[in-house]
Nucleic acid binder design. Structure first.
Lengths: 195, 195
DNA sequence: TGTACATCAGTGAACGCGCGTTCACTGATGTAC
DNA sequence: TGTACATCAGTGAACGCGCGTTCACTGATGTAC
């Protein structure tokens, strides 16, 4: 597994990781070729030895962001499940945690970009569809037993929407919105067991 | 009420109406000074006789978009209420109607822009907060009697999120997501009366 | 072990284009007498 | 009613800047013998 990465592969990975953060912090438009390369410790001229176009980077950045966030979510959920939370409760608390109000660059790529997704070129939009589907399936796999699996779409929409509205409101209003959303989701899908 | 508008005021209104559609179709970045002026039948040079800056136009465009969409929503709801729908059912059907999957330029400005709102300058972000609050209050005023008014935030988040995910998915997947969201909202908040 | 050459990753200047903003000017409308 | 002038809305050229993309070149690493 300890695959040796060539110098070029290391650079490539570094660029994608930087872009995966930038795309969630600043949106599609906030990802500039020169800025990304600079933050990765390189100069912009070398970019096209790594990617066919800026769009190609955006696609890789979305994949990397999704992968990274999924890993963080899973870890945070595992910590909560150890403490007795159900998988669903752990998901709701991890996804709608107050920390995501400010630190968007490590957060959910769908929540960070959803209203811009339909305005991108074909390849980016197609990757966006995959990221949405992936998130919905992750939510589905975390629903409590006995809950209709078709609820996954609605739960996902609620969490994504709540995060966005809370971020826009910010401050107390934003935190309150998260509180209410967590309570509503947990009450609806496991009313007897708050954990 | 039939206020006579001066020639300049008429132009101003036309520009804002064009921008209110453009901002929902193409996002903040999709609103270019030259394009908007052209679509309003003017040339770009005259822009700064109407607005202090592009940002000032964005603020007015958001207000106009919100006002216009609110009017359309209310009309659509009234038509459904005449047919026996409850106010809440009418809201859910009007807001999550399939037609909003494609025609975004007349749709909800919050759904069209939410993931970009936090990345705008202060004045635009501030107006965005107002638009979110306004939408939440509209939803609150449409909740069925007996439902906790604090559910307004969650319902709004669900509707906004669902519209965005459905738009990204598009086609059958998008329409299915809307169907499931409508059913879930109606079942949760008025389980006995499907209307 | 050392030398000559090829390959490779990255550099930095330059190009072209779009876009927000400015400004001197024009043509139409309104006003004074 | 007509003439002279002022005001006003809009025009279009130009400026400056950012940004995606290209390309000739450099310096380091790897390879052949």
């Amino acid at each position: 597994m300890s695959t040796q990465l060539s110098r070029k592969e290391q650079s490539h990975e570094r660029i994608v990781e930087v872009a995966a953060r930038a795309i969630r912090r600043a949106g599609y438009r906030g990802v500039g070729v020169a800025d990304i390369m600079k933050e990765a410790g390189l100069t912009h001229g070398g970019f096209y030895a790594h990617f066919a176009s800026r769009e190609a980077l955006l696609v890789e950045a979305m994949q990397e962001a999704s992968r990274g966030n999924q890993a963080e979510l899973s870890e945070a959920m595992a910590r909560r499940m150890v403490k007795g939370h159900s998988r669903f409760s752990a998901l709701v608390w991890a996804y709608l945690h107050d920390s995501h109000l400010i630190r968007t660059e490590n957060g959910c790529v769908v929540a960070a970009l959803s209203s811009e997704m339909t305005r991108q070129g074909d390849v980016v939009h197609q990757e966006a569809r995959r990221r949405v589907t992936y998130l919905v399936e992750f939510v589905r796999s975390s629903l409590p037993q006995g809950v209709d699996p078709e609820q996954a779409e609605v739960v996902t929409a609620t969490m994504v929407g709540a995060l966005q509205l809370a971020r826009t409101l910010g401050g107390t209003g934003g935190r309150n919105l998260l509180v209410q959303t967590r309570e509503a989701l947990l009450q609806k899908h496991q009313p007897d067991n708050p954990h």
